[in-house]
Write a protein that binds this DNA or RNA. Structure first.
Lengths: 199, 199
DNA sequence: GGTCATACAGCACGATCGTTCGTTAACGGC
DNA sequence: GCCGTTAACGAACGATCGTGCTGTATGACC
């Protein structure tokens, strides 16, 4: 029996969280303040907080949306490719594209949140870790598949390759965000490609 | 005509900035507050700010110290090695060691500051960029020397190798800080080693 | 059409933010 | 020993922080 339909409330929540993601990607998930976001949305602080209970829940929901946006942008379109190297290459293409034109104004949200909360403890740190662990496992599984079918020149532990792949992405994000030089994207793409060179 | 000798004032400043670096490495350079740092140092807010003029100058001085600590830990001890691959290997050894046991409780300060300020503009962003540009040039120069004397299996643009080297370091930092798993350090070390494989 | 549930605004709370002020105390130069 | 300089303090400023509480208005349900 809400004042608005369930669909409308969900839509409002979505708009709210999109604004929260955009804001937090620039000033950080901790720098995100209730007052500023409420201003941005032209609503009152209490009305905004009422949607989530408290600030931490807002932060967690913001993080959740950012994770979903990453998944939908990078991973989702790549699963049409067959598992293994082809899918890996598609993921990396998407990944670099995402880094060059992120869904957020402030660069990869996950990277920012990871660095921001790596030295603190609490629910947000845990949520970041869970999300990144999941992503790491996805990469590992694809790499393992590609290795098993002999598609990769590289051998050894799939976790090693996943680690390096992720490092290249994080490094590319940092470099590109700081210098806004598209050569960072080219270098990231090349580094990923040489890591995934066919057998 | 200060109340204390110049040496004493410098020492105080050093103690202050060490505490600032430690604090900021955990809660971020922007999350660093005058009140909290003053509490940590058991002095008044006004006394603390008086040493630097305002908060931004304190942040800049904190960043400067962190950069100097990185330089002294990673680069300085490596220059006893001859320029080229030997020095590069020494730098990377030091670099991974620094990432595993940073001078700061919150992981690599430069990486944190870079991510924190990459989407904002202002003096701090600029200072971070200057510091990282300088480091990138140091790496490039060493790589170019090593390539010129045929010490590296890799060929191509030294800037590409410097980029990847830095990406591995940043990625290692993120992974290790988030998961506290020493395997991240091993993987980082191996990835750097394969990048710098001898000819 | 009356009743209920609820999303939101408005306001106030205590805390903390960065900054500024006047005062105090300690030091070097005369 | 006096004077000028200066670092540090305590207090206060307005602003903003996150969080409660209350009133109100609106849509859903009977």
């Amino acid at each position: 029996m809400p004042r608005r339909s369930v669909a409308q409330v969900d839509a409002d929540r979505g708009v709210t969280l999109r604004a929260a993601v955009d804001l937090a990607s620039v000033i950080g998930l901790e720098g995100l303040t209730v007052g500023r976001l409420a201003d941005e949305l032209e609503m009152s602080k209490s009305g905004l907080v009422g949607r989530f209970g408290n600030k931490q829940n807002l932060q967690l929901a913001t993080l959740e949306l950012a994770v979903e946006m990453f998944r939908a942008t990078v991973y989702e379109p790549a699963i049409v490719e067959p598992a293994g190297r082809a899918r890996l290459v598609a993921i990396c293409e998407r990944w670099i594209g995402y880094l060059g034109e992120p869904c957020f104004p402030g660069g990869c949200f996950l990277t920012s949140a990871s660095v921001e909360f790596d030295a603190r403890e609490g629910p947000i740190h845990d949520a970041v870790r869970v999300a990144l662990d999941r992503w790491q496992r996805v990469l590992e599984a694809e790499i393992a598949t590609a290795m098993a079918s002999g598609e990769l020149a590289a051998d050894g532990d799939p976790a090693d390759v996943a680690f390096t792949l992720n490092a290249i992405a994080v490094g590319t994000n940092c470099d590109y965000q700081l210098r806004r030089d598209p050569r960072a994207l080219q270098r990231g793409r090349r580094a990923m490609a040489s890591l995934l060179a066919p057998a």
